[in-house]
């Protein structure tokens, strides 16, 4: 219990550090944000307009006051308003976050559904044809960039086979079938790297577990090979797999940015990319903080899952 609390505390502390760094980054960057915002194509902006925008953004206040307001806003879930259209950043994020989460979840499910069985099979038949074949596929999957795979998937499934549209989004409430169809390719693209990681880790972990003493005990009991594998090998091999799953979720979050762009999936990446181009600071900061918080949260959840899978963790 104490362990859980300490773990939670560390995550909160890290979140605070991340928020502070993002805030500082905005203020140490050379050039005044207001000036940068108003300058269009090399012409120097009107001094009066800059001053007005500075007041509007609160940039004329002392840094400590700005920082205090920033943190106070964060604790209330207030991330400010977009500089482009005055729309509250938090509201925009809440609208789009579920779609990004759905993509990540679907991607992880696909990764586990592919990686776990193939990794186990490759370990059991290690050195054989299946092992080598799967290893080669995993190496290629790990190497192909998400946006390349996404683009190629569109080329094959939308352009040549014409099985589905090239991208887009239909809410589940307006047609679950179409929703899932449109989800399938982006989820595959998001999960491909994780699938390769899960495959590799499962294979290594199962190979390791196979040589353990307690597996020898299980065999000495006269259990069937299938039961030995299911109860004493795979179950024990799961903890390290869960850990890498957590460790690589960050890469998954990064991958969704590109995948959403490729497939026109209306998650967080559309407003993020738009905001990066328009230098819409509150929007960029809001989304980056949200995703970083998500990242920490996933890691936290993975730690708890790890503890549930391995009863020894809570003791140490």
């Amino acid at each position: 219990m104490l362990w859980l609390l300490r773990r939670l505390g560390t995550s909160l502390l890290l979140m605070w550090v991340v928020a502070t760094i993002v805030f500082m980054a905005l203020h140490v960057v050379p050039g005044d944000p207001a000036e940068v915002l108003l300058s269009t194509g090399g012409t120097s902006p009107d001094a009066y307009a800059v001053a007005e925008l500075r007041t509007q953004l609160g940039l004329d206040l002392p840094l400590s006051v700005q920082y205090g307001r920033f943190l106070a806003g964060l604790t209330r879930g207030d991330l400010g308003v977009s500089l482009v259209d005055d729309y509250p950043v938090a509201q925009e994020i809440m609208l789009r976050l579920p779609r990004t989460l759905e993509l990540i979840l679907a991607g992880s499910l696909i990764a586990v559904a592919i990686g776990l069985p193939t990794g186990t099979l490759a370990a059991v038949r290690h050195g054989g044809g299946f092992d080598r074949g799967a290893g080669a596929v995993a190496a290629v999957l790990q190497s192909v960039p998400v946006f390349v795979l996404g683009t190629l998937l569109i080329l094959v499934f939308a352009q040549w086979l014409r099985w589905m549209p090239a991208g887009g989004f239909v809410p589940a409430s307006q047609g679950l079938g179409q929703h899932l169809l449109l989800l399938s390719l982006p989820a595959l693209a998001v999960g491909k790297g994780l699938a390769a990681v899960v495959y590799r880790m499962t294979r290594a972990s199962v190979l390791d577990a196979l040589s353990r003493d307690h597996v020898r005990t299980a065999r000495a009991k006269g259990l069937t090979p299938r039961r030995v594998l299911a109860r004493h090998v795979v179950r024990n091999a799961l903890s390290p797999v869960a850990t890498v799953l957590g460790l690589h979720m960050g890469a998954l979050l990064g991958g969704t940015v590109l995948v959403e762009y490729v497939f026109n999936w209306p998650g967080l990446s559309t407003p993020l990319l738009r905001a990066v181009e328009a230098r819409d600071y509150p929007m960029v900061v809001g989304i980056i903080l949200t995703v970083s918080a998500l990242f920490l949260l996933i890691n936290l959840a993975m730690d708890f899952l790890y503890a549930a899978l391995d009863p020894r963790i809570l003791r140490s």
């Binding site: 890469a251 590109l258 993020l272 960029v284 900061v285 980056i288 995703v291 970083s292 990242f295």
Partner: peptide, 10 residues
């Protein structure tokens, strides 16, 4: 703590 591409975008 930052997903790499987000830090890059920042």
């Amino acid at each position: 703590c930052f997903p790499p591409i987000l830090l890059a975008l920042l």
